[in-house]
């Protein structure tokens, strides 16, 4: 049986890739997909811990995370559609209204 820390390392790698993707890409949809990637990495960690501790709580947690991810995807994509309607672009650099 492979050590469980390998799973955690894999989870860390995926999470890091997701972070880098969020920070470097400018396409809002790709950024969003990277966030999903990060969520997946966290899910993997949860399942691993669940396995390690012989507990079902981690899996239940993942279940709820997926629920939230689904809701988030629906709302987030709706926001992107709305943004695209208003700005004609999904480039996050075009949305720099946070600066006066």
């Amino acid at each position: 049986m492979i050590p469980l820390s390998w799973y955690l390392i894999l989870s860390g790698i995926l999470f890091t890739i997701g972070v880098i993707g969020v920070l470097t890409r400018r396409n809002a949809i790709v950024i969003f997909m990277c966030i999903e990637l990060m969520l997946n990495a966290v899910n993997l960690a949860f399942v691993t811990f669940s396995r390690q501790l012989n507990s079902m709580d981690g899996q239940i947690f993942v279940f709820f995370i997926m629920t939230v991810a689904a809701a988030e995807a629906a709302v987030g994509l709706a926001i992107i559609v709305a943004l695209f309607r208003n700005k004609g672009s999904v480039n996050v650099d075009d949305m720099n209204l946070m600066k006066w």
């Binding site: 920070l23 996050v92 650099d93």
Partner: peptide, 14 residues
């Protein structure tokens, strides 16, 4: 420091 770019803020968060 306030560039207005969300990515930049995310970087600071990280």
């Amino acid at each position: 420091f306030q560039t207005g770019y969300v990515r930049n803020y995310a970087l600071s968060m990280l």
